[in-house]
């Protein structure tokens, strides 16, 4: 019995005291207060949090957890989105059928559902997060800049959702984009239909025409066609995720720098 017991302990030691494990996790599994603090401090992901927070901030009725859920949903969307890209080709010829096939040709067939419903839920959680921050007055100095970053994140969330709306290339998609891109055409000065676009001209040659206004730059075409689908695909899968991650990093960093979670003075 004796040697067996010894071996058991050694197995745990073999893992947790091994060079490999110690190179990844610098701290032991925490058993005391110091250990708990050090664990948070030493972990790249956990150190988004401070080691301790005030009591009121743990109460669900104060924070509603909307910020963390929005972040979580963003990661769910990133992962499911990457998986969806394996089965989707952004061309007018293939897009609709690829989406149609997805339900049949992929195991379980709910990846698109998870992606779509998570996206809806993310919009709602971001709105409610903003509402909570407003109602607690948490945007007041010194957090006013981070509120601004949050507003940009909110806008980007809706833009991400909107660009994803086009990709199935169905009736819902094309008409939402028709309306959306014609708003670009109505932009003052740089849109063909917008006020003041006639001012931007050299002599008789108008600088803002069918093939040179904001709408044309957005769609890469005068119609909603191949160019628009590819552009919205790139916006949705690369450009906006890239931008939103940048702003998310600033947002989280500023929470810590602006004094952590808000609370009464």
């Amino acid at each position: 019995m004796g040697p067996e017991k010894k071996q058991k302990r050694n197995l745990a030691d073999l893992i947790f005291k091994s060079v490999l494990w110690r190179s990844i996790f610098r701290t032991d599994i925490p058993t005391d207060k110091r250990g708990r603090m050090v664990t948070v401090l030493n972990n790249f992901f956990l150190h988004l949090h401070p080691v301790s927070i005030p009591r009121h901030a743990v109460k669900l009725k104060y924070t509603w957890l909307m910020g963390i859920l929005a972040t979580f949903l963003f990661f769910v969307l990133t992962i499911t989105g990457i998986l969806l890209m394996f089965y989707y080709r952004p061309t007018v010829q293939y897009a609709y059928n690829d989406v149609l096939d997805m339900a049949e040709s992929t195991p379980l067939g709910v990846m698109r559902e998870i992606h779509r419903w998570s996206a809806h839920l993310m919009v709602i959680t971001v709105w409610l997060h903003m509402f909570r921050v407003f109602m607690t007055g948490s945007y007041k100095p010194p957090r006013e800049f981070n509120w601004g970053v949050g507003v940009i994140l909110l806008t980007l969330t809706m833009l991400l959702s909107f660009t994803g709306y086009l990709l199935p290339w169905d009736q819902l998609a094309i008409w939402a984009i028709t309306v959306g891109s014609n708003m670009a055409a109505a932009t003052p000065l740089v849109g063909r239909e917008g006020p003041g676009s006639a001012l931007l001209s050299i002599g008789d040659i108008s600088l803002i025409g069918r093939t040179s206004d904001a709408k044309f730059m957005l769609l890469g075409d005068t119609r909603i066609a191949e160019g628009a689908l590819l552009r919205f695909y790139v916006f949705h899968c690369v450009f906006f995720p890239f931008i939103i991650v940048m702003f998310m990093m600033v947002h989280f960093w500023r929470i810590r720098k602006d004094g952590g979670i808000s609370g009464p003075a």
Partner: peptide, 12 residues
């Protein structure tokens, strides 16, 4: 104050 590990992390 309340320690983030484990209380806050559990909630999250």
């Amino acid at each position: 104050d309340i320690l983030v590990w484990p209380d806050v992390l559990y909630i999250e």
